[in-house]
């Protein structure tokens, strides 16, 4: 493969991952005692899903419920609760669905591993097809002569 051909997928991957996400909604100004709590708050409202919106996090959404849940997260962070405790609180009430990255459990194992299994199956398929093709004997001199004649013929049409 030539260099540009190799670079193309890399560039594409960079482009996709660097694409800007949806603009954040108007999130209330919040004040914390320290930067660590503020970081935790920002982290959590990006991690928790807004339940009434189509695929937005709490920080993306203007929905009423999202604002209420942000307020609840704020209280808990300001009250000194840990990240695990807050996530646990939300999962107990709204289920795994509130998490953008569901925790690994028997119920979510398929979700986590299926993409890898599919990719692996794809590689296996490509590998066996390539192997089968390489096993085909190269054509004889007579066959290539015939092929050339056919191509010549086409050109005169």
């Amino acid at each position: 493969m030539t260099r540009p051909a190799l670079m193309a997928p890399v560039m594409l991957a960079l482009l996709v991952t660097a694409a800007p996400g949806p603009a954040a909604a108007q999130v209330e100004a919040v004040n914390f005692e320290n930067a660590r709590q503020e970081d935790l708050y920002r982290d959590l409202i990006d991690e928790l899903r807004c339940l009434v919106c189509a695929n937005q996090s709490l920080s993306d959404s203007n929905a009423d419920l999202a604002a209420d849940l942000r307020a609840r997260v704020y209280e808990m962070v300001a009250g000194g609760q840990s990240r695990e405790a807050i996530i646990d609180y939300m999962v107990k009430r709204y289920g795994e669905y509130v998490l953008y990255r569901p925790r690994l459990s028997p119920a979510t194992a398929f979700l986590w591993f299926a993409p890898f299994a599919v990719a692996l199956a794809g590689f296996a398929l490509i590998f066996t097809m390539a192997k089968r093709r390489s096993r085909q004997p190269p054509c004889t001199a007579a066959q290539s002569q015939q092929a050339r004649a056919l191509l010549e013929d086409e050109r005169h049409w």
């Binding site: 339940l51 009434v52 419920l65 209420d68 849940l69 009430r93 709204y94 289920g95």
Partner: peptide, 10 residues
């Protein structure tokens, strides 16, 4: 909506 959150109302 405080109690609503406790009950997971959405």
């Amino acid at each position: 909506g405080r109690v609503g959150i406790e009950y997971g109302v959405y």
